[in-house]
């Protein structure tokens, strides 16, 4: 099962946000989008999630246009973590995570089990009864990640997980923790799409990387193919060296 975006363009008031995008998010694969601010990564994520409709081209989930799925049908197989989520009500952390179970009729007991498993996995069990509005930025981000996970935790059919900068407020160890979990989800057959800014995280975890610039795809492929000095210098306009990571065979990007 895959979500396919073909020759897709999106404009807002004649300003092109996406231009001729061809991309596939496949079950069991972790795909990372990188690129400078305003490159269209978040818009692309919204096209994949069905939130934004394309002006030209098409976006299909398993041969059917995403826009023709009902919100209910999409919500049982596709979870989205936006860049920011604001919540002003004093929900407990475990209640926030359980919101991801709303689309499923799995019952309170099973939902509580799932929420518990996820909190254990993400090491936020100690926050379970905390008031969400009193958490730090990084803690909130991990709780929202947990909520997105709970939405596709034990689905039997195909599933997709779309994460928009899930590590932006996290310290080093939690950045790796989040991507490890995302990777595990892809190994369980979920199609995972992650927008990232850290190219070394991308190189370490991605099965495939798509480099974007000004609404277009510059290149997509393996980390070695995409993360080249020429590509990155051209797109980001800074000095780049690409070495080989001493602890593995993936590229190591250094900028100055």
């Amino acid at each position: 099962m895959q979500i396919r975006v073909c020759d897709a363009s999106v404009h807002i008031r004649n300003k092109p946000l996406l231009d001729g995008i061809n991309l596939e998010v496949v079950s069991g694969e972790l795909l990372v989008a990188i690129g400078p601010n305003g490159a269209g990564k978040s818009t692309l994520l919204k096209v994949i999630s069905g939130e934004v409709e394309v002006d030209k081209g098409w976006a299909r989930l398993d041969e059917t246009p995403i826009s023709s799925y009902s919100l209910k049908d999409l919500s049982v197989m596709l979870a989205v973590l936006p860049q920011h989520t604001e919540l002003h009500f004093s929900f407990e952390v475990q209640q926030v995570i359980a919101l991801g179970r709303i689309p499923h009729a799995s019952g309170n007991r099973r939902n509580a089990e799932i929420v518990n498993e996820i909190m254990k996995l993400l090491e936020i069990l100690h926050l379970a009864r905390r008031d969400y509005t009193t958490l730090s930025g990084g803690e909130m981000q991990r709780v929202q990640f947990a909520r997105a996970l709970s939405q596709i935790w034990d689905i039997s059919g195909p599933g997709f997980l779309l994460l928009d900068e899930p590590t932006s407020s996290l310290d080093l160890s939690h950045q790796h923790a989040v991507l490890r979990v995302a990777k595990d989800m892809s190994r369980k057959g979920i199609g995972v799409f992650v927008v990232l800014h850290d190219m070394n995280l991308a190189a370490r975890y991605a099965d495939r990387i798509v480099l974007m610039h000004a609404g277009r795809i510059v290149q997509q492929g393996s980390a070695e193919e995409v993360l080249t000095e020429q590509n990155l210098q051209e797109v980001f306009g800074v000095n780049i060296r690409v070495l080989t990571h001493p602890e593995g065979d993936h590229p190591l990007v250094i900028s100055w």
Binding site: E51, L71, S75, P82, L87, I102
Partner: peptide, 17 residues
């Protein structure tokens, strides 16, 4: 209502019209 306090687009992703 529980879904929409997360935001409108989040609520849509949770299947809320």
């Amino acid at each position: 209502l529980n879904a929409i306090i997360l935001g409108e687009s989040e609520a849509r992703h949770l299947g809320v019209e």
